[in-house]
Amino acid sequence: MDKIQGFFEKQAFGVCEWWGEKLNMEIGQIRLSFIYLSFLTFGSPIVIYLVMAFILKHKYWFKRRQPTIWEL
């Protein structure tokens, strides 16, 4: 069971882990809430999860960079 759980945690995009660190919650609770919300709302949190995964994967595009002295 630990091997299966480790495989899925490595394949996940890290969205639940990121939210867990930001909100100081257990990662398992966040994952369960995504699963329950997906069943209750017919899958719309899956789309939100994938958007958040894309943003986390490419967060350097979305961060506002401060201009350096050489760019002024």
Rank of each mutant, 00 (worst) to 15 (best):
T68L: 15
I35P: 02
E26N: 11
T41I: 08
S33Y: 15
I55L: 05
K10D: 06
L72H: 09
G28P: 05
I55C: 02
E17V: 01
W61N: 07
Y49D: 02
G6W: 10
K63S: 02
M25V: 03
P67H: 14
M25D: 05
R31P: 01
S44D: 14
Q11V: 11
F8E: 10
M52S: 10
R31C: 08
W18M: 00
R64E: 05
R31G: 06
Q66F: 08
K57G: 00
F34A: 12
F39E: 07
L56D: 01
Q66G: 03
F62G: 04
V15C: 00
G14H: 03
Q66W: 07
R65S: 08
I4G: 03
T41S: 12
K22V: 08
F8V: 11
Y49T: 06
W19L: 00
F62H: 08
V51F: 11
F42Y: 11
T68W: 11
Y60V: 04
L32N: 15
F62Y: 13
Y60C: 02
L50Q: 02
F8N: 11
K3H: 12
S38Q: 02
W18N: 00
M1R: 14
R64Q: 13
L23C: 05
V47F: 14
K22M: 08
C16K: 00
I46P: 07
N24A: 15
R65D: 05
M52L: 15
I46C: 13
Y49Q: 06
T41Y: 14
I46W: 14
W61D: 01
M25P: 01
L72F: 06
G20K: 04
M52T: 04
N24C: 12
F34N: 08
G6N: 15
M52I: 10
D2F: 15
Y49R: 10
F34G: 07
I4S: 13
K10I: 08
M25L: 13
K57N: 10
L23K: 09
E71M: 07
S33L: 15
T41Q: 12
A12Y: 05
S33I: 09
F42L: 14
K59Q: 05
S44P: 07
L37G: 00
Q11K: 15
E71G: 02
I30E: 06
I69S: 02
L56A: 03
L32V: 12
E21G: 02
T41A: 05
W18S: 00
K59C: 04
Q11S: 11
V47L: 12
D2L: 09
F13M: 12
F8R: 07
V47N: 14
G14E: 04
W18I: 01
E9F: 12
V51R: 04
F39L: 13
W61K: 15
I69Y: 01
F54T: 06
W70C: 02
S44T: 13
E17F: 01
T41G: 04
R31K: 15
R31F: 08
V51E: 13
